[in-house]
Design a binder for these strands. Structure first.
Lengths: 204, 204, 204, 204
DNA sequence: CATGAATGAGACTTCATTCAT
DNA sequence: GATGAATGAAGTCTCATTCAT
């Protein structure tokens, strides 16, 4: 298995042990509960540290969430970047993005849950480092689309932003059922179906 | 203007005035804040009633949210059903669903916000009346797709569930920026773009 | 005894019982401890209410302190105003102010302690209602001095602000030992001594 | 300029650098905030050392405050003693004490703030070294007064303790506005005004 | 001489909710 | 149909302090 979900994969060098324990604890707890119903007491207990320590390393309970998300996102980013690099055609790159994103979400549900459900309705998330990574990811997709149009792989009358929207929306919606109801997803099939629709169109 | 956003459109007019005031108060407050940071005290103050009264009419703070959502959803449902009825071709129906959904969300941001951001991460929402309406809406789309396939308008090798996913995902993702950042959306253009992609495909 | 210290003497009409209990509780506790080492838990327990109730009626723990102080100050103000009214000569009025202030502080040590020790180093006190009363009191003294100068009772080359400073400073310093160490004060003697110095001067 | 306020004037130069940095840090921070809202973290950060080091040199956060106060007080004491020595008449000595005290407080507001606002409501201050210096200062005034009476410069029916109270109270009250609101003080004028009142009396 | 990690006790505060009237 | 008073449980966060290295 190429992708790990077990622990927050951080550039773990200089982080003090307590900080790592706390981040892992939140990650673990979010497998079962939503962020709001996890208390700092829970986190501390799970991490085996005192509540106070959380506030040594994190401004906030929210800040902790964002840093955890950020950690997950970096792993995701590295992984997806490597996968894309193996492709030359734009359409293939998009295909890979769709499949890999679905896979990442499937493998790391905590990551998916945070990104898709928890974080979006708090405005200060959009000023966090974690959101910066989303922007990079999102930008990458747009660039690939533009290259595809330039290379004549994609029709010129396709609006790049709209296509990105459709791609991201499809990915996210496909994951929702998974995240919310815990359904298993047949990633190969789902991603193929999505690509079939988006690339070839549904109309006869 | 065909669609109203001002007040919760309560289908049964027989609601006692206090109940209406409370529901409107929440609706109003959610234009600015997210549900979690709205307190019952806020709601009562905005409604001009006492906190206690909320619990006369609603089991719960959440129950209040669901009832408000439900009110909005019924308006939405009526509106969209009427629009679809005017079309005969499946593809046109889907086109209308996309456009009308986008428009409804745009016109009534509170509705969009509740549905897209607030409600999804609380498990008991999925047992609420409000969610039943979502299922009807969702079912309708699936039926139209199947009819489209049967009628030869849509390619047979398209997976109906996947198509629904792509459609819903596209709609929702297109609204997110609106809901979160308050961006204006050019609905005609956006829906046309989306349809262009989904129906014709992007690949040359 | 004309002056009561037992309870916060408030225009107690419309105050809910819980609010009164809380204010009295703080007053009582401050007889023994300083404000900072009194916890909201202490206050609630003493008042026989829950901690939460404190925040129904007071913005803050500090706000509670200011409101209590304000209550005490109103009693003080009423009392002193009545006493002054009985005098015609400015010098006699000042004499009465000195004596009565000393007496008030002596009788109500909580009041003295709050005013002289607790409140002065927190900047937002100076925007509280309680401080407004201090300003009135202070203004009154200044007015009496000016009248005394106009009436020829007080030397024209005396600076009114300076005289007020000397008077207030003398009063407060005289009380400090009382407040801090719990010394008894012979008010008649002390006030006479102070007046002797200020009015007649110490130089032969 | 005869009087320095910049740094804690440490009488023994043999203090280790860390200790000096910490004391200076507190001094500096107290120019803006009150003691209670300065945290050990603030102090350490400002000093450029770690929190732990504070407890190498000081028993307590309070102990640190007292030692800082003590440093300031020694400078003050040296300065005032020298000034007094230049006078022969008791009245002149008192005059000098008033003026010099006002000046010292004006020049070193942190010193004034600590002495006048911070320290008085914590009982263990009165067992600290810093308080011993206050007692010496206070005793000096009393001695001068007694000598003045013996020498026939001051009326015999003046109570020495009361006079000291009036003097100290006047000084302190004059400084309060300065310390609290940051008002500038015209020391020559203020001290002259005070002396005018105390020495000559205000009554015609 | 100094650091850095961690603690622990408790502080203040919030808020949904209940109930007598 | 509505109010107002009060609850209680929990929640987040703060900070002085300790100790091994």
């Amino acid at each position: 298995m190429e992708l790990e979900q077990k622990k927050v994969c951080l550039p773990e060098k200089s982080f003090p042990p307590g900080k790592i324990k706390i981040m892992n604890a939140l990650s673990e707890l979010m497998r079962e509960k939503d962020f709001h119903s996890i208390t700092t007491a829970d986190i501390a207990a799970t991490a085996g540290v005192t509540e106070g320590l959380i506030y040594k390393y994190f401004k906030d309970k929210k800040d902790l969430l964002y840093q955890v998300l950020n950690g997950h996102f970096q792993t995701f980013q590295h992984y997806i970047t490597r996968k894309i690099a193996a492709q030359t055609a734009s359409v293939d790159k998009l295909r890979i993005i769709i499949k890999t994103s679905l896979k990442s979400y499937a493998v790391n549900r905590v990551f998916a849950r945070i990104l898709l459900l928890e974080v979006r309705n708090s405005s200060n998330y959009f000023e966090s480092d974690a959101y910066d990574m989303v922007k990079i990811y999102s930008r990458t997709i747009l660039d690939i689309i533009s290259q595809g149009i330039d290379a004549g792989e994609i029709r010129e009358d396709v609006d790049p932003h709209a296509l990105r929207q459709v791609i991201l929306g499809s990915i996210e919606h496909a994951c929702l059922g998974e995240v919310i109801f815990g359904k298993e997803l047949d990633i190969d099939k789902v991603s193929e179906n999505i690509c079939n629709i988006i690339f070839k169109g549904v109309q006869k």
